[in-house]
Simulated scan of single mutants.
Amino acid sequence: MYPGTTGTRPATELSTSDRPRLARHVRLSFCRTRQRPILQLPETVVVLNRSGADILELCDGRHTVAEIVAGLGARYQTVPGDEVRRFLTRLVARHWVELADG
């Protein structure tokens, strides 16, 4: 667990049953100037592409990774589940996304 948090754990490899959510210090937003979705972090802004934003919109701690992949599949024809897991794994490693205990 991260210091000062409960119900979260770090991950070296995401499972389809993990329930990702944005960390408390991270906010998904839309930048009007750039006309792009962004992640706002302390002293940092990360510009996202649409698919990255779509993944993170579903990271609410209720949806499993499998449900996120299925939800994206309803929007797009092909959704490589392994790419979604790699994307989320990188964000978990940076402490931008946490995994809620099921």
Rank of each mutant, 00 (worst) to 15 (best):
T8G: 07
V26F: 05
L41N: 10
A11G: 09
R32D: 15
N49K: 13
I38E: 14
H63S: 06
G61Y: 01
Q35G: 06
D60G: 09
P80C: 00
M1T: 10
C31M: 03
T12C: 04
R94P: 11
S51M: 11
A70F: 03
L58P: 09
E83P: 04
T5Q: 11
A74K: 04
A53I: 01
T12Y: 05
E67F: 03
A93W: 01
E43P: 05
G7P: 06
T12K: 10
L14N: 11
A11L: 09
R62W: 08
D101T: 07
T44E: 14
A66H: 13
L28C: 09
P80R: 08
H25Y: 10
D54R: 12
H25K: 11
A70C: 05
P80A: 03
F30R: 08
A11P: 08
R94A: 15
W96C: 05
R21L: 14
A53D: 01
G71A: 06
R86A: 12
F87C: 09
R9D: 02
P80L: 03
T89A: 14
D101P: 10
F30P: 15
C31D: 15
H63T: 02
W96D: 06
R94M: 13
G102N: 08
R50W: 02
R36G: 03
P80F: 03
R27S: 08
V47C: 07
T44P: 07
L58H: 13
P20M: 00
T33L: 12
E13F: 02
T6F: 09
P37S: 06
R21I: 07
H25E: 15
I38G: 11
N49F: 00
E67P: 14
L41E: 14
Q77M: 03
R34D: 12
